[in-house]
């Protein structure tokens, strides 16, 4: 080994061979293709199973830790701060406050949406501060949404509910 180089500018070169998307489409490069099909079934666990079953009844449920006195939402079986089992189940309201929101013009694959979706983080009434979850807003123009807006859940009819977060169709502003 010798004493290293001096007065050089780094990186000295930028190796690599750039391709265009069209090079693949027109098969100008050598490549191999595969479409894996892997299926999953996720068990919801103790806390979220109860949460989803309560959604079917049109109710939102949370859990409570008696040590830090937080009402935890979405519910969990242990308090991650005190690291102990939760003490109780409590119902929270289906009203809340918009903590932050976004107007999305893209779907999960980043393809454009015809009509934008308004997604929001909603802190539900009755749970501790900042205990929020993500959902979508409806019955409101995108430009009328603001942080701090009070909203209420709009539920699917009972016979259509299936124990999913989509049992709430969307959240709409509370008038006045």
């Amino acid at each position: 080994m010798s004493v290293g180089k001096k007065d050089i500018s780094c990186p000295p070169e930028a190796p690599g061979t750039p391709l265009k998307d069209s090079d693949i489409a027109e098969k100008k490069v050598t490549y191999v293709e595969d479409h894996p099909d892997i299926r999953y079934a996720w068990t919801a666990g103790q806390a979220i199973s109860r949460f989803l079953n309560e959604l079917k009844k049109g109710k939102l449920i949370a859990t409570k830790c008696n040590k830090c006195r937080r009402i935890l939402f979405p519910p969990r079986m242990f308090c991650e701060l005190c690291y102990k089992p939760i003490d109780d189940w409590v119902y929270v309201k289906d009203t809340g406050t918009v903590q932050t929101f976004s107007i999305s013009y893209i779907d999960p694959d980043a393809k454009p949406l015809e009509k934008p979706v308004i997604v929001a983080v909603i802190a539900v009434d009755g749970a501790s501060k900042n205990m929020a979850f993500m959902h979508v807003l409806g019955e409101v123009e995108p430009e009328k949404v603001y942080i701090g807006m009070k909203v209420k859940a709009v539920w699917k009819p009972e016979e259509e509910r299936e124990g999913s977060v989509t049992d709430i169709k969307y959240w709409k502003p509370i008038e006045g």
Partner: peptide, 20 residues
């Protein structure tokens, strides 16, 4: 279970954080 039924895009969390 909680997020994917809403058909989210990863950009959402950044948009939500940026807006806040």
């Amino acid at each position: 279970i909680l997020d994917r039924p809403l058909a989210p895009n990863l950009i959402w969390i950044f948009a939500l954080e940026m807006n806040r």
